[in-house]
Amino acid sequence: MNAIECHRLTRHFDRLVAVADLDLAIPAGTIFGFLGPNGAGKTTTVRMLCALIAPSSGTARVAGFDVQTQAAAVRAVTGILTETPGLYDTLSALENLTFFARLYGLSATQAAERAAHYLRLFELWERRNDPVGGFSKGMRQKLAIARALLHDPAVVFLDEPTAGLDPAAARAVRDVIKTLRAGGRTIFLTTHNLAEADELCDLIGVFRTRLISLDTPANLRARLFGQSVRVVLAGPAAPLAPLVQQLPFVSGVDAEERVLLVRLANPDQHNPALVRALVAAGADVCYLEPFTPSLETVYLELMQEAVTVDSAS
């Protein structure tokens, strides 16, 4: 079953198209990474999926509920961490959480229990009675995440959940996100931290007003870069690039300083021939290793392609 489904979801603001024809199908229990530059329409998408604003056209269902006709139900089964924590500074951590828990329909007892659970989980229990105004950015962020989880939502929207957190706190948040997935929840993660997205996400959507690509991180890498090897030489790599490019099993090559990045169909089969060709050309090969491009590399490549396509059209 899909936790989130969109069909040609579109949103205009007057003449500005913020989101165009978005099609998504995100299975339940998935961590979905929604990546895109600032101003790409990510926040607008999240707001439509949380039934906060209406689409101009198209449809969307979250946890089985239509965002337009069943907006209240959508809001009841979703949790959201907004761009800014949005906490009440004069209220304590406990008061902030119990207020929202009650607003989500929990009884006073349930609200107190859930608040205590998440305050302990995020190591804020000792500060539970302190006004939030005195909290650090990281503590506020953790409290805002706790608020998003209080009512046990089926789908959680997290906008930059680890922004401003120290490494240990960020690790704790990532662990919580993994735990949520293990519990069957669906996480819609908006982030600029691509290493984090790479670590956490089962599916990645690269987005700039329209969806540029939607796939698993491994498939995105394979689609863009195929199988690649990184050849480290003793001398400059650039003069050898044309020679390597001519080899029949090589589909692409990039040279940078002493490194050749070679795309080939089957590294196990073709690496020996590649090394022989380089040595025959007089190159000193230091070593050779499989190359896995970072998600950042994949993202930048996809963005570049999108910009090229947009410019051409």
Binding site: L52, A76, G105, A144
Partner: peptide, 14 residues
Amino acid sequence: NRRTLEPLLAAPIS
């Protein structure tokens, strides 16, 4: 100003 309205509006309250 404190940007607390969005979490409030995201709650299931009319």
